[in-house]
C-alpha cells in the first residue's frame, strides 16, 4: 500500500556514505543547502550537480527504487517550474504566440529554481536513506548541544524526534491494517467526489488517532516507571566517532561550495 514511500526509510548498505559520521552528513547537507542558493547561474550549479551525482553513486541506492520514490516530488518541481516560466517577466522575449509569452529571464529563473530544489531533495532524501534514525538523532543532538547554554532543550528535541521517527513504521503498519479492515467491511477510499472521499477517511483517522493517544500514554508510563529523566546528564552507550574520512568529505563539500562561489555571476 505504501510501497513507494521512501521518506524516512533506511536502506541498509555497506557504502562510504553509510559509514560517514551523521554529524558530518548533517553539516555537509547544511553547507550544501546554503551554497546552492548562492549559486545564481546554471553554470555555477554544475559542481553541485556533479557533487550530488557522485554522492548518489557512492551510496549504492538502487536507482529505480529511488526514482519511483521521488515521483511526487518531481511533479511538484515541474509545477513550480511551469509557474515560474509563465509568471516571470524579465529579459528578452523568447516565445510569443498570442496569449503565451515566455521571457528569457523566466526560463533561466525557472530552471535555476527547479535544479536547486531537485538537488536539495535528492541530497536530503539520501541523508535519511543512508542513516539509521538513531544515528540521525544522535547527530542532531550533538550538533545542537552547544545551544543548551542559551536554553534550547536539545536533548528533549532529539528525543521527540527519535520517538517520532521510531513510530513512523508502526503507524504505517497500523494504517495499512485499519485500511484493510475497513475495506473488508465494504469501505472505499478511492471512489466518488472529493467530499465523499474526505468523509471516507473518518473510519480510518478515528481509530488511528485513538491508538496513537493510547500508545503515547503507554510510552510515557513505561518511561516514567523506569525513572527516565532527560534533564540529568546522560551518558551514551554508543558514541559517535569522527573519522579522517569525515573530514575529507567535509573538505570536498567546502571545495564544491568554493567552486560554486567562483562560478557565480
Amino acid at each position: 500500500m505504501f510501497d513507494n514511500l521512501i521518506i524516512g526509510q533506511y536502506v541498509p548498505r555497506e557504502s562510504v556514505i553509510h559509514r560517514m559520521d551523521p554529524r558530518a552528513k548533517l553539516v555537509c547537507l547544511f553547507l550544501f543547502m546554503i551554497v546552492l542558493f548562492i549559486g545564481n547561474r546554471i553554470i555555477a550549479l554544475l559542481p553541485g550537480i556533479l557533487f550530488v551525482a557522485v554522492a548518489f553513486w557512492l551510496a549504492q541506492i538502487p536507482l529505480r527504487f529511488f526514482a519511483k520514490g521521488l515521483r511526487l516530488i518531481v511533479i511538484i518541481i515541474t509545477i513550480t517550474f511551469i509557474l515560474h516560466l509563465f509568471m516571470t517577466r524579465e529579459g528578452n522575449v523568447l516565445v510569443d504566440i498570442g496569449w503565451l509569452t515566455i521571457y528569457e529571464g523566466a526560463l533561466t529563473q525557472a530552471s535555476l529554481i527547479a535544479v536547486r530544489l531537485f538537488l536539495l531533495v535528492i541530497l536530503a532524501s539520501m541523508l535519511t536513506l543512508t542513516t539509521t534514525p538513531i544515528d540521525l538523532t544522535d547527530g542532531l543532538e550533538t550538533l545542537f548541544g552547544p545551544l543548551k547554554k542559551i536554553g534550547v532543550p536539545a536533548h528533549e528535541l532529539a528525543l521527540t524526534m527519535s520517538i517520532a521517527l521510531r513510530f513512523i513504521p508502526t503507524l504505517l503498519g497500523e494504517t495499512e491494517k485499519i485500511v484493510k479492515a475497513q475495506l473488508a467491511r465494504g469501505a472505499s477510499f478511492s471512489e466518488g467526489s472529493l467530499v465523499k472521499r474526505a468523509k471516507a477517511l473518518i473510519p480510518l483517522l478515528v481509530p488511528l488517532l485513538i491508538q496513537s493517544f493510547k500508545r503515547a500514554e503507554d510510552l510515557a508510563t513505561a518511561m516514567e516507571a523506569r525513572g527516565y529523566d532527560g534533564s540529568s546528564e546522560r551518558t551514551k552507550y554508543r558514541e559517535l566517532t569522527w573519522k579522517r574520512s569525515d573530514t575529507f568529505m567535509l573538505m570536498v563539500t567546502i571545495l564544491t561550495g568554493v567552486m560554486i562561489l567562483i562560478l557565480r555571476g
Binding site: 491494517k177 485499519i178 484493510k180 479492515a181 465494504g186 473510519p203
Partner: peptide
C-alpha cells in the same frame, strides 16, 4: 473496484478487531 461484491460474501475478522471501531 470489482471486488466489493466478493467482500460482502467473505467477511474478515482481523487480530485485535476492536481497533477498527470508529
Amino acid at each position: 473496484k470489482t471486488l466489493s461484491k466478493l467482500r460482502q460474501r467473505v467477511g474478515m475478522v482481523f487480530q485485535f478487531p476492536e481497533h477498527q471501531l470508529f
